[in-house]
């Protein structure tokens, strides 16, 4: 479904990605783990077109998408739920979701809103509340719900569990599994490597802009290097 080949990305003189190759098949949850600054967020930014790439290629559903503008990439069915939630604090929950469905046709909007709220009943209860007044967990729910509004085929989540209480983290991971069951493909970036590898099918380990390990999640969990560096053991 998605294939990155030798992808390179720079921030001025800084080379954040130095040839990343990975692929995601339809219906999978794929986890990207790595230390802070490894280039996980940069990989997602390159895919969603928020940041341009300087080499390599990104192919989605048989089509080159590297360096397309973000709105065209969203239209192709890739949705990016960025790091740090970034919900619109001054817009209500409903308006946040409507923004998520920005590219939907008018007649699809109401139906999609109901579908998404069906997945997140708690947001339905707070539908007219300003986004900024939600709790951290609710804001993360809203960010995911917003990213789902555009009916993506591939959902990219950047550290959805960051800074949340353990109960909320569990909820978020349950939600991701539930989303997979609806046929959605998920590319998940997580610091919380243990939990992420538990729910995902395959994983990649990123170090300083390069993939150093990859395999099924079960294999990665058993790998000594992964255990030492990312699973705290």
């Amino acid at each position: 479904m998605l294939r990155l080949t030798d992808l390179e990305l720079r921030y001025g003189p800084i080379r954040a990605l130095k040839g990343v190759t990975l692929d995601v098949a339809a219906g999978e949850i794929v986890t990207l783990i790595g230390a802070n600054g490894a280039g996980k967020s940069s990989t997602l930014k390159a895919i969603s077109g928020i940041h341009g790439t300087s080499g390599g290629s990104i192919v989605f559903a048989g089509r080159r998408i590297d360096n397309l503008p973000p709105h065209e990439i969203v239209a192709l069915g890739i949705s990016h739920c960025p790091e740090g939630r970034r919900i619109f604090g001054d817009l209500s929950v409903r308006e946040n979701l409507l923004m998520g469905g920005y590219l939907l046709a008018k007649h699809e909007m109401a139906g999609r809103l109901d579908e998404v709220l069906g997945l997140f009943p708690r947001l339905g209860e707070r539908i007219h509340q300003a986004g900024g007044t939600l709790s951290g967990g609710e804001q993360q729910m809203l960010a995911i719900a917003r990213a789902l509004m555009c009916k993506p085929g591939l959902l990219m989540l950047d550290e959805p569990s960051l800074g949340l209480a353990p109960i909320m983290v569990e909820k978020i991971f349950e939600t991701i599994v539930a989303l997979k069951q609806t046929g959605l493909t998920v590319l998940l970036v997580e610091q919380n490597a243990g939990a992420a590898l538990e729910i995902s099918d395959r994983g990649y380990v990123l170090e300083i802009g390069q993939v150093t390990l990859s395999g099924t999640s079960a294999a990665l969990r058993d790998d000594q290097r992964v255990a030492q560096a990312y699973l705290g053991g």
Binding site: H71, V74, S79, F88, L91, Y102, R146
Partner: peptide, 18 residues
Amino acid sequence: RAWIAIRENEMAAGALGI
């Protein structure tokens, strides 16, 4: 709404296809 979304968070607005 798109304008306000941009004011609130430009990067997120871009990621949503605006």
